[in-house]
Measured scan of single mutants.
Amino acid sequence: GQVHVGDTTYHFPNPEEARKFAEKAAKENNLQVTQHGNTFKVE
């Protein structure tokens, strides 16, 4: 799974890890998570 936060892309071998990371980043920054397959975008 990939997580895009601003201009930075994080790669995770496990989509579940990617999702947890995205949700945590979104919560900390008052942002939203959008999911496209195994790619998550925090914005």
Rank of each mutant, 00 (worst) to 15 (best):
G1V: 11
G1R: 04
G1I: 11
G1E: 02
G1P: 10
G1F: 15
G1M: 09
Q2T: 15
Q2S: 13
Q2P: 02
Q2W: 15
Q2E: 11
Q2K: 13
Q2D: 06
V3S: 01
V3T: 03
V3G: 01
V3Q: 01
V3N: 00
V3Y: 01
V3I: 03
V3K: 01
H4Y: 12
H4M: 14
V5S: 03
V5Y: 13
V5I: 15
V5W: 15
V5A: 04
G6K: 06
G6C: 11
G6M: 07
G6V: 04
G6E: 05
D7V: 08
D7M: 11
D7N: 14
D7I: 09
D7E: 11
D7Q: 12
T8A: 12
T8D: 08
T8G: 04
T9M: 10
T9C: 14
T9Y: 09
T9Q: 06
T9R: 07
T9D: 03
T9N: 04
Y10S: 01
Y10V: 04
Y10D: 00
H11L: 11
H11K: 08
H11G: 04
H11S: 09
H11I: 11
H11D: 07
H11C: 14
F12S: 01
F12T: 01
F12P: 00
F12H: 02
P13F: 07
P13Y: 07
P13T: 11
P13G: 09
P13Q: 11
P13M: 09
P13A: 13
P13L: 10
N14V: 04
N14Y: 04
N14E: 05
N14I: 04
N14R: 04
N14C: 07
N14D: 11
N14P: 02
N14H: 06
N14K: 04
P15F: 15
P15E: 13
P15M: 15
P15S: 10
P15Q: 13
P15L: 15
E16I: 07
E16G: 06
E16D: 11
E16L: 08
E16Q: 08
E17H: 05
E17Y: 05
E17N: 05
E17K: 04
E17Q: 09
E17V: 07
E17T: 08
A18E: 00
A18V: 00
A18P: 00
A18Y: 01
A18T: 00
A18L: 00
A18K: 00
A18Q: 01
A18H: 00
R19N: 03
R19G: 03
R19W: 06
R19P: 00
R19D: 00
R19H: 05
R19T: 01
K20L: 13
K20N: 09
K20D: 08
K20H: 08
K20F: 09
F21D: 00
F21K: 00
F21V: 00
F21C: 03
F21A: 03
F21L: 00
F21S: 00
F21N: 00
F21M: 02
A22E: 00
A22H: 00
A22W: 03
A22D: 00
A22Y: 02
A22K: 01
E23S: 06
E23F: 14
E23H: 10
E23W: 12
E23D: 09
E23A: 09
E23K: 06
K24Q: 12
K24L: 11
K24Y: 11
K24D: 08
K24R: 13
K24P: 00
K24I: 10
K24E: 10
A25W: 15
A25Y: 15
A25L: 15
A25P: 01
A26M: 03
A26T: 03
A26N: 02
A26W: 02
A26D: 02
A26E: 01
A26Q: 03
A26L: 02
A26V: 03
K27V: 08
K27F: 11
K27W: 09
K27I: 10
K27H: 09
E28I: 10
E28W: 10
E28G: 07
E28A: 12
E28T: 08
E28F: 10
N29S: 11
N29E: 07
N29C: 15
N30E: 06
N30Y: 06
N30V: 04
N30S: 09
N30D: 09
N30G: 14
N30F: 08
N30W: 06
L31F: 07
L31N: 05
L31E: 05
L31V: 07
L31I: 04
L31K: 06
Q32H: 12
Q32F: 13
Q32W: 11
Q32L: 11
Q32Y: 12
V33G: 01
V33A: 04
V33N: 02
V33P: 02
V33Q: 02
V33W: 11
V33H: 03
V33C: 09
T34F: 13
T34E: 05
T34G: 03
T34I: 12
T34D: 04
T34P: 01
T34R: 09
T34L: 08
T34V: 12
T34A: 06
Q35M: 08
Q35I: 09
Q35T: 06
Q35H: 06
Q35V: 11
Q35F: 06
H36P: 01
H36K: 10
H36W: 12
H36T: 11
H36I: 14
G37I: 03
G37Q: 05
G37D: 06
G37C: 13
G37H: 05
G37R: 04
G37T: 03
G37V: 03
G37F: 05
G37E: 06
G37W: 04
N38D: 07
N38R: 05
N38K: 05
T39S: 12
T39N: 09
T39K: 06
T39M: 12
T39F: 10
T39A: 10
F40K: 00
F40L: 04
F40G: 03
F40M: 03
K41Q: 09
K41S: 11
K41V: 15
K41A: 08
K41P: 02
K41Y: 15
K41G: 04
V42T: 04
V42W: 01
V42A: 03
V42Q: 02
E43L: 11
E43N: 08
E43H: 13
E43R: 08
E43K: 06
